[in-house]
Design a protein around this nucleic acid. Structure first.
Lengths: 291, 291
DNA sequence: CGGTATCGCTGACTTTAGTCAGCTAAAATG
DNA sequence: CATTTTAGCTGACTAAAGTCAGCGATACCG
């Protein structure tokens, strides 16, 4: 009916209004929106001012003033970063933390109301929101190290195996049980585990482990469905290869399966070439690359 | 990984920022955002001031001033509604229409940029946006009369037949051809066609036609997948039954199919009872109700 | 017809947001 | 060590948004 552009605009209109309502609901605490937003973004363990500025996209003067206002309210305390005394870190006071919790509860209630509106389509709604946020944050994806037993890493691995079981008929659903006895192999100094973050949501991973003195193996490349087709797989591969190089490896191997066409395509277009089998089914493609 | 609430907040954060950027892009036309938003919402054929206020959620004083500013710029002309001279209607002047088109083009370009970010997932993105907007607008769904040949009505009917073909094995895809020779039967005084609107998007329909002097038939109840499970089907049925009553019908009939479980459930829980067959397959359930 | 409600306008005002130049202190650079 | 860069603060300002009481015109209702 409506064309794509009209539908996007409808979305914008509605969400602006809805979020406006959410924003103004933060009023009623006797504090302007700007200050409330800052307060909410200060983490209990402290957040540096530059990050607040970046995330809220505020002028230095404006943020400074907002912080001063919160400080005179006794809600935050701003002090120099001991590592670099030009930088300053904002921390919540106990009173600030209490107020932060109030905002948190308000936001929680608002969110709950949205979900109630969604009724039985709640999960679909959340998926849709994830997708939109992921697309809009496309430029801001960050790849960071993670411990292989970290919850985010576990979530990625779980999603990876789920995908594998779905896409590769030879994989049995038993693989979905995840005690991960080999986590140690993906930790420094013999391995690495990288997670791609879109804001606070993990949307991809890749890992590395030692096969020999100079030989590494890349494993578990996974990209969240919402983030596919946007080059994230390549970015992850580049990152893990660079890491392997830095760790002193000269070559890397990987195994995969022909059913994972996107992955196979990615590898072969990025300098990986076929090599002799070194693992057993369900793997049926083996590749190697000089780093 | 993240819980539902955290994911909704991520969505809010991202969309606020993104939409903020979209808003400020409307600057650079030498006009504050408020005025620009008003200008964009004035339809070429005229929009009454109350509706502008409602849609932008503005104070009467504020909107009045914005309109006056636009008026002194020569972009709009506000005049009394001839039907109720307390109300006022804002209309675009030719210059205003030109400016409106500029904003339209700006928004168009912005939207295009968002779609480009989505890459191959463009359609999924639009669907997701529709869904979110529909859920958020749940309370504001309006049911209005439509002509059965109106594009919105056609789109609903088309979606309805598509659903039918998917859900009912006995339906052949031939049904998707839609010359609708019987449009006349769904027009006053012998019938009616109602469409449910979520903002500008049609998300449901139901229609009525005459079977006898006192007997009507309800046909083509359809609810957009994004709006299901939220009572819209019931609202549509209530509306069409009320309409039938107003038109002087005393009873109504309908036919449906057991595969459409939600529909059958809705009817039987809302006072419809089984009756003898009066149409042929693929219908296999027939119901009636005293109005 | 008179009383009352509704609609939108105006004036006077406050609050919030945003901008910018100039400043200080600390770190980085060479 | 002098110079440059970076981080953030402050003061002075403007623009925009929002609030509220009161007004005039019109419609509605008995």
């Amino acid at each position: 009916m409506l064309d794509a552009i009209a539908r996007l605009r409808r979305f914008n209109r509605v969400v602006t209004r809805e979020i406006g309502a959410l924003d103004t609901s933060y009023l009623g605490r006797g504090r302007p929106l700007g200050a409330a937003r800052v307060l909410q973004l200060v983490k209990p363990e402290g957040t540096d001012v530059a990050e607040l500025r970046r995330r809220l996209d505020l002028d230095t003067g404006l943020l400074s003033r907002l912080l001063r206002a919160l400080e005179t309210e006794g809600l935050v305390h701003v002090a120099a970063d001991p590592d670099d005394r030009r930088r300053r870190i904002a921390r919540l006071t106990p009173a600030g933390f209490a107020e932060w919790q109030v905002y948190d509860a308000l936001g929680h209630a608002k969110a709950q109301a949205v979900f109630e509106n969604a009724g039985i389509r709640r999960d679909a709604l959340i998926e849709a929101m994830d997708m939109i946020a992921t697309v809009m944050l496309k430029e801001d994806v960050e790849i960071r190290d993670a411990d292989p037993l970290d919850p985010a890493a576990r979530a990625c691995i779980e999603a990876y195996y789920k995908l594998l079981v779905e896409a590769v008929p030879e994989c049995s659903p038993d693989m979905l049980i995840l005690p991960l006895p080999d986590a140690e192999r993906y930790r420094s100094p013999d391995g690495a585990f990288l997670v791609a973050w879109s804001d606070d949501l993990p949307i991809g991973c890749v890992s590395l482990r030692r096969l020999g003195p100079k030989l590494a193996e890349v494993k578990r490349l996974w990209v969240h469905p919402h983030a596919r087709g946007q080059g994230l797989g390549l970015r992850l591969m580049r990152a893990i290869e660079a890491r392997a190089r830095d760790m002193g490896f000269s070559h890397a191997k990987l195994d995969t399966n022909t059913n994972l066409t996107a992955a196979v395509g990615l590898y072969s277009s990025d300098g990986w070439s076929d090599t002799e089998p070194y693992t057993s089914p369900p793997a049926n493609v083996w590749m190697t690359k000089r780093l």
